[in-house]
């Protein structure tokens, strides 16, 4: 079943530059899709259409068969978004409060809010830090907290925008492990990155974007050799003709 259906999506910015240029795409439920491209290729703009943070000029974005522009609230509940900079998306004064922010916005009963918060914190292994201030968490922990904030809204699709930026090696491993657990639990994952090295071995599908268009869309092993033409570095092992290893090994 297709969870995301996009038809002829186009987005033009206020300065008349084209952000997204006629994208049509479907994503199956449970797929792990990596979207790569150089800076300014339109990855973030594209992802922001999935939960109605940006609305298209022309074209339709459907999540679970329902148009995003018809029901933005539903789209935001179904598509959780983890942004590049966790510091600017953590709004709570404590870890618990931050995770509760989303469910509270959905006007859920307070017992349900608490249940979801505890479940989400357990899922990202931050339950022992529930009373901590987010500011004192490490980079990897902040990223996991951002994931918990999204998980508490019980989305079917989780979108990660450059999840590994500014993270050290243990931080990357923590976050990667988290993302793979979510995928294993049945979530559809979309991830934008310009660094394929860390994640591509786990992806089902690779999209390459350039100038607002999807220029390549296939299984990673089929197109990985050609990505450098679009400003994306081929993983080291692939360049050397070796098998790409997971960062978790």
């Amino acid at each position: 079943m297709n969870i995301i259906e996009i038809t002829n999506l186009r987005h033009q910015f206020a300065d008349k530059s084209i952000g997204i240029d006629d994208i049509s795409l479907t994503v199956k439920e449970g797929e792990f899709v990596v979207i790569a491209g150089r800076n300014g290729s339109g990855k973030t703009t594209f992802l922001r259409h999935l939960n109605g943070l940006l609305l298209s000029d022309t074209g339709v974005v459907k999540i679970g068969g329902i148009s995003v522009s018809d029901n933005i609230q539903m789209a935001r509940q179904m598509v959780g978004m983890v942004f590049q900079d966790p510091d600017t998306q953590i709004v709570g004064e404590t870890v618990f409060d931050d995770v509760a922010f989303g469910p509270e916005n959905l006007c859920l009963d307070k017992h349900e809010v608490k249940r979801r918060v505890i479940k989400a914190l357990k899922a990202v292994d931050l339950i022992n830090m529930a009373d901590q201030r987010p500011h004192v968490l490490s980079g990897g922990e902040k990223r996991r907290l951002a994931v918990a904030g999204v998980l508490a809204m019980e989305p079917r699709v989780i979108v990660f925008d450059e999840p590994f930026s500014d993270l050290d090696y243990p931080g990357v491993r923590q976050v990667l492990h988290q993302i793979l657990s979510l995928h294993k639990a049945g979530h559809t994952i979309l991830m934008s990155t310009h660094d394929l090295e860390k994640v591509i071995v786990h992806a089902d599908r690779l999209l390459i974007m350039s100038k607002g268009k999807i220029v390549m869309d296939d299984e990673p092993e089929k197109i990985i050799k050609n990505v450098e033409a679009f400003g994306v570095r081929q993983p080291c092992a692939s360049r050397l003709g070796m098998k790409i290893e997971s960062w978790l090994n």
């Binding site: 600017t88 998306q89 916005n105």
Partner: peptide, 23 residues
Amino acid sequence: EKADKLAVAMEARCFSEKRTNKA
């Protein structure tokens, strides 16, 4: 710049003034 990003992140998590409050 951070305030702007914060507003977008809050919007992505369905922020509204009508929300559940802890009693």
